[in-house]
Design a binder for these strands. Sequence first.
DNA 1: GCAGAAACGGAACAGCGTTCCGTATTGTCT
DNA 2: AGACAATACGGAACGCTGTTCCGTTTCTGC
Lengths: 198, 198
Amino acid sequence: MNDSGDGEGTERAAPSRRKDARRNKATLLEAAAAVFVTSGVEAPVRDIAARAGVGVGTIYRHFPKRADLIIAVYRHQVDACAEAGPALLASGATPHAALRQWIDLFVDFLVTKHGLAAALHSDDAGFDALHAYFIDRLVPVCSELLTAAAGAGEIDSGIEAYELMRGVGNLCIGADNDPRYDARRLVGLLVTGLRRPR
Amino acid sequence: MNDSGDGEGTERAAPSRRKDARRNKATLLEAAAAVFVTSGVEAPVRDIAARAGVGVGTIYRHFPKRADLIIAVYRHQVDACAEAGPALLASGATPHAALRQWIDLFVDFLVTKHGLAAALHSDDAGFDALHAYFIDRLVPVCSELLTAAAGAGEIDSGIEAYELMRGVGNLCIGADNDPRYDARRLVGLLVTGLRRPR
DNA sequence: GCAGAAACGGAACAGCGTTCCGTATTGTCT
DNA sequence: AGACAATACGGAACGCTGTTCCGTTTCTGC
């Protein structure tokens, strides 16, 4: 939602009155990104604070909910994914193929972020904002692709974009460090299942 | 794994030397089942202890890992599900239809157990035994159904039973209290996606 | 009844997210 | 430059988890 964004692109809120605050916020984002890679997005807040060389209070001042920090770290990648949707749709292939490619993009993103998929669907209230951000950003794109595919007669299942996105997200849970579980293959089957039988 | 099972069906371990211990174990199972319905399988241990009128120590003596308690509560239902597999296969329909029906059974079970699906795929080490129990019990059944369907030429995807079961389980996460997410429909699409294109 | 074994209860510990407040830093105004 | 708010900081403290530990109670076989 709102935030006291610094150079973070599309924000309008005042970029904080003090230099040290801005610097700390940037340091925190870097540290969080690094820790997320190592220990997953559920890493202890204290670890992130330690890595950034600040106190835990500083984290909560800049990112009141843990979800805000996660969103800030991954915002660019989520936005890039969202923007890839229309591009794929315009790039020649059939709408169903574009949908498949777009979903692959999303799966690749999720699978490489240890624990993100799990956090995304945690029923912990603290993650509501994270859930909402992903939904807000990606569901409309998915909906557009779905509508195009339906319009082209390639799919007929009355599935909603929200449901499909949640299903894909769920399939990505725990998809790292288990060689016997390949989320990409299962998501592929799910997308295949959408196709109109002919 | 092993346990000091009381009247719990297929156990062979000694049924405990003392009457109060047996009674407490039974009380604990009842209390846990009740609390799981109300608050989900991740309910605080203290809540279960309080409901049963015992101390937390007593829980840990009977069920050293939290997973052991969950397994004990749901063992009968999981076994029933496992046993339904061969029955469905023998009951007339095509193997693919039997697979679909069996998976529906599993999904119905999971979806009605608040938080079970999530616990099942938690990477928390304490839930390893739970994970292992479900896998041990259900993967062979699923494998049988899958093989039969492949033998009948109905599916050709080289998917493993383990992967399919995990996918189905993942799709069931958070499937309660969200009217916009119907795990059954998504699992249906996944199973449809298995079918050989012809 | 009486050991002694078995089981109990809950205090105590460790690890987590989050809040709070005394202290330090910064920007500004004179 | 000096001083005074305003702002931000650090980390102790709180409340909630799961889990362990041990002094006390209860049972069982003799």
